[in-house]
Design a protein around this nucleic acid. Structure first.
Lengths: 224, 224
DNA sequence: AGTAAGCGGATATCGTCAATCCGCTTAGCT
DNA sequence: AGCTAAGCGGATTGACGATATCCGCTTACT
């Protein structure tokens, strides 16, 4: 699936380097977002820039290659959630799990959130995910476990709202974003209006200050 | 307060241009955020770059000049909120009003949110605001109108969570962010666990797509 | 052993932004 | 009315960061 049936197979060192580049890219995209340069990736892979550009025409190609699979994983989570009989669990499982994934991979968040990123294949997957979310929300509303004025697009905005929290606390207090997800979920759940115990304590004002100060520059890059 | 008692007053054309620059800066900072360049501002003011740099050493000086007042307005809102006898109204008035201000002024949001921005005077004001928020939250908790595990720093993160929503919908559907603020407030209010009517309908999936696509690049600039 | 494939990384190119400089204009004084 | 310091515009310079190429050397494979 990775290599077309070309006359000659790739030379051994070449394919090793290709893997190294993919690994490095995975790591850097996850940690710093899609803004890292091919030069960064090459250096991280312990390989010359030339090598990087010989294997991938540009960063986009690398992104498309890597994230199709990551997005399919998100799609799979949505499908699994639809197998869950309890509609509230289904919806929250989807949210919790995919946010977890996005928390661990800034690039994944960016490509999920920004429809201008990625090629046709990426778009395909995104297009397949949307109706699954619609269905998850519909079921939850039909079962009366979610307020009736909640809509599928609210899921999208909620995800984008989590991004700055994730980015500012990633290195400092990993699961703080779940605290805010909980507030949000307590604001839309209708079958049980008691408060869910918060999965993480609030940050002290000092740590909050540090978090806001050390926020990583969001390094997304616009499409050419 | 603006001009020191210097030997000669500023020449008339000079002070007119100074005002023009301040107006242009206010407008551009509000609309595009603090990332705009002094050149942008000069052009917008209908004035040469040289003039801009003669009046203000750099963008920072301009920012500090303009935003001290804006931040004081936020402080004033907090103080007014503390005059409000009902603790829930007090807290939500503060949130609603300051978010409204931030919605109308991207620069204000940035400087409120990023402690590395602004000079000592700006920092002073920020330092004065923090304890007011602590007090607003304390009162609400003491009165039992807000869940007991809610903390003042949650206000900070909630504000930063609204930013991407505001930025993606500003030109498309001005008050959508209030919808998400409402979800959030319904998730922390403890005296009344019914749902607050949403101030704005959900965006259609098409409009949401447009919103995510046309999101303005966040143009904050790091300090030197 | 020969050679096509691959390699590294210095370097060219581009775009963006900050900041200066200088020839011309004008406000304000006498 | 004439003088001059102050002000003006904006082309230009310089720094920087990112992308992408090029080319002399090396290596895998037959």
């Amino acid at each position: 699936m990775t290599t077309a049936p070309s006359p000659r197979p790739m030379r051994k060192d070449a394919s090793i380097n290709r893997e190294r580049l993919l690994d490095a890219a995975r790591e850097l995209f996850a940690e710093k977002g899609l803004g890292v340069t091919l030069n960064d990736i090459a250096r991280h892979a312990g390989v010359g820039v030339g090598t990087a550009y010989r294997r991938f025409a540009n960063k986009e190609e690398l992104i498309d290659t890597l994230f199709e699979e990551r997005l399919q994983a998100v799609e799979a989570v949505a499908r699994e959630a639809l197998d869950e009989p309890d509609p509230w669990t289904a919806l929250t499982d989807y949210l919790t799990r995919t946010l977890q994934m996005q928390f661990g991979d800034r690039g994944l968040h960016q490509i999920l959130d920004d429809p201008t990123l990625g090629d046709a294949r990426i778009n395909d997957v995104r297009t397949r995910i949307a109706p699954l979310i619609v269905e998850l929300v519909r079921r939850a509303k039909d079962a009366g476990v979610v307020r009736s004025d909640f809509e599928p697009t609210d899921v999208t905005f909620m995800q984008s709202a989590m991004a700055p929290i994730m980015d500012s606390t990633r290195d400092l207090a990993p699961q703080v974003y779940e605290r805010y997800l909980t507030f949000f979920l307590d604001g839309i759940r209708s079958d049980d209006r008691t408060f869910t115990p918060l999965p993480a304590p609030a940050l002290s004002s000092e740590i909050t200050h540090t978090a806001m100060t050390s926020r990583r520059r969001s390094t997304a890059r616009r499409r050419a």
